[in-house]
């Protein structure tokens, strides 16, 4: 009994030590970004290159654009890297961010069942495509969250003069991947960024049914969280990251990222 107790005591101490074990303390910054960049694997491609050059570790939290901006507002990230231009500009205007830089773009595409019940392949532009879905009352899976993709979707509905509602309109309230999983199952149409779509593996019968309209253009911006709002922001290393990603080296790294032989993001700085 006494031995058993002693054993438990020492096991307890060992575990406590394990818990207290510090993670290798290194120079790092925290970036709040979107699911589209993380899920596509872009960061896995470019961050090691940056780290090799500077020694700075970049820790990426992938959230919806709205949540990522909120994380920045609260001072829980040093940098935000998102795609919802209007919200980003407001973020800077309100003093939470220092300055917004264009980084890259990809575009949105509308995916849907291969049978294309609403006839989107024949649509003249994005406006017409959205209107076709609504008038056919074909199932549509929406993010329904605070993301850049949802912001873009709402703008498209507004342009088409449609107030999306009804049994055909499925608001998932979740991330891009989860929404695409839903779309695969229903099957339903969905608006997605091309990057997530190309690296998405559970496509089922879905295919791209509409693409190419300039309004589907999806620009990404990067912003340093204002150190005057949050004194602990690692401004120097963060600025180094921003400088790098909009530099020729960073832009080249972005351009060289491919999934299945296809380039996902296109450099756009300057």
């Amino acid at each position: 009994m006494i031995h058993a107790r002693r054993f438990i005591l020492s096991a307890t101490c060992a575990l406590a030590l394990l818990a207290a074990l510090p993670v290798t303390a290194q120079e790092f910054i925290t970036v709040a970004s979107t699911t589209s960049t993380e899920n596509s694997g872009l960061f896995g491609h470019i961050l090691p290159i940056f780290r090799a050059e500077t020694g700075i570790e970049v820790r990426v939290i992938s959230q919806g654009t709205g949540q990522a901006l909120e994380t920045g507002r609260r001072g829980d990230a040093d940098v935000v890297f998102v795609h919802a231009r209007a919200q980003e500009e407001k973020f800077v205007a309100n003093g939470y961010g220092v300055q917004r830089f264009d980084v890259m773009y990809n575009d949105f595409v509308i995916v849907g069942p291969d049978t294309d019940p609403a006839g989107l392949r024949a649509a003249a532009d994005a406006k017409a495509a959205m209107a076709a879905i609504a008038s056919a009352e074909a199932s549509f899976a929406s993010r329904g969250d605070d993301s850049g993709t949802y912001t873009a979707e709402k703008a498209l509905w507004a342009a088409a003069g449609v107030e999306p509602a009804g049994a055909w309109y499925l608001s998932t309230g979740s991330g891009m991947g989860a929404t695409l999983n839903t779309a695969t199952q229903v099957p339903a149409y969905a608006l997605t960024d091309r990057g997530t779509w190309l690296s998405f593996e559970n496509r089922g019968d879905l295919d791209i049914v509409f693409e190419g309209d300039p309004v589907l253009f999806n620009p990404y911006g990067i912003i340093l969280v204002n150190p005057q709002k949050h004194a602990h922001i690692k401004a120097e290393q963060s600025q180094a990251f921003i400088d790098w990603i909009i530099s020729d080296a960073g832009q080249a790294a972005i351009a060289s990222f491919e999934v299945g032989g296809k380039q996902l993001f296109f450099p756009r700085a300057n």
Partner: peptide, 25 residues
């Protein structure tokens, strides 16, 4: 935790991530 690769990614958050990538297998 934020599901940061190499830092705060656990089994369950990795499963969530792979699900979101459609990588169900």
């Amino acid at each position: 935790g934020g599901n940061i690769a190499g830092h705060t990614r656990t089994m369950t958050t990795a499963i969530t991530l792979e699900t979101n990538r459609g990588n169900l297998g």
